[in-house]
């Protein structure tokens, strides 16, 4: 009986949290629709978010993309040569980098950098009553604090994904020059890549980036607002933002990939 009561209580608590999270997501979508239709004091928050999430992550994204592109090239070349299928290298690069690793790894980087930052920043604002202060002057925290972050993170992830793809393919080319005794001219290399690259490949990556951007930003802002009053809750919110974002990114990645290939 006690076990049943405990299970029931947990189920109620879980349902209540789920409903709250869905309500939060609905509010974010509603306010996002309104954001560009009216004069907003939130524009500078959006500008700062793009600057922090997008511009300041260019360096780490480039380094990672070059390294991943090189690794894909090295691993792919050695396997394909065993089967005499070296010409498939270009197709593999396009599929692995543009469709999968570009959006996925970019989202992971942004989760680690901006997801934690957003959750802890908002959590700190809750603890210091800054959110209540915004409400007291008539600013809706969702439209003023959440929406610019959601738009900023999503736009940044899309741009960084394209940027990752470019540097990933470039990294692959650089490694190919070291491995190949007869280096391929870059014009020829790019020509072969572009002849294989389709609009679907590009759109597939961008679509994933859009979904991942929404996931990271909504989860991080939600976790930031879940802080109640103690400063000890702030790092917990950061950890939860990262953990839940990673899980949801992987789940949505599988779902979107299945939709594309089914």
């Amino acid at each position: 009986m006690k076990l049943l009561s405990s299970l029931g209580s947990k189920a109620r608590s879980y349902s209540s949290r789920l409903l709250y999270a869905l309500g939060f997501f609905y509010e974010v979508l509603k306010e996002t629709g309104r954001f560009f239709r009216k004069s907003q004091v939130g524009y500078w928050v959006l500008r700062n978010q793009i600057l922090f999430t997008g511009y300041e992550a260019l360096g780490i994204t480039a380094i990672m993309a070059i390294a991943i592109g090189a690794a894909v090239n090295v691993i792919g070349s050695s396997i394909q040569q065993q089967f005499g299928q070296s010409q498939l290298m270009y197709s593999m690069l396009i599929i692995v980098i543009t469709r999968e690793l570009g959006p996925l790894l970019t989202a992971f980087v942004i989760t680690a950098r901006s997801g934690t930052a957003i959750a802890t920043e908002l959590g700190t604002m809750v603890v210091h009553h800054e959110i209540e202060a915004y409400m007291a002057v008539g600013l809706n925290p969702i439209s003023y604090l959440v929406v610019p972050r959601v738009i900023g993170v999503t736009v940044s992830i899309v741009i960084l994904t394209v940027y990752f793809n470019l540097f990933g393919l470039l990294g692959s080319y650089v490694v190919a020059q070291f491995l190949n005794p007869t280096p391929t001219p870059i014009i020829e290399y790019m020509g072969k890549l572009l002849s294989i690259l389709t609009v679907t490949d590009v759109l597939s990556g961008i679509m994933k980036a859009l979904v991942f951007g929404m996931v990271v930003s909504v989860v991080s802002t939600y976790q930031g607002f879940s802080v109640n009053r103690a400063s000890t809750e702030i790092p917990v919110a950061g950890i939860r933002a990262v953990g839940q974002s990673f899980i949801l990114i992987i789940v949505t990645d599988v779902v979107v990939t299945l939709m594309q290939y089914a």
Binding site: H128, E130, E132, A133, A136, G138
Partner: peptide, 19 residues
């Protein structure tokens, strides 16, 4: 809500300034 906020001001116990 906005009309009420325009008509009111709130002083917080711990100031609650935007850091």
């Amino acid at each position: 809500e906005l009309a009420f906020r325009a008509a009111s001001g709130f002083v917080f116990q711990d100031a609650a300034l935007w850091a």
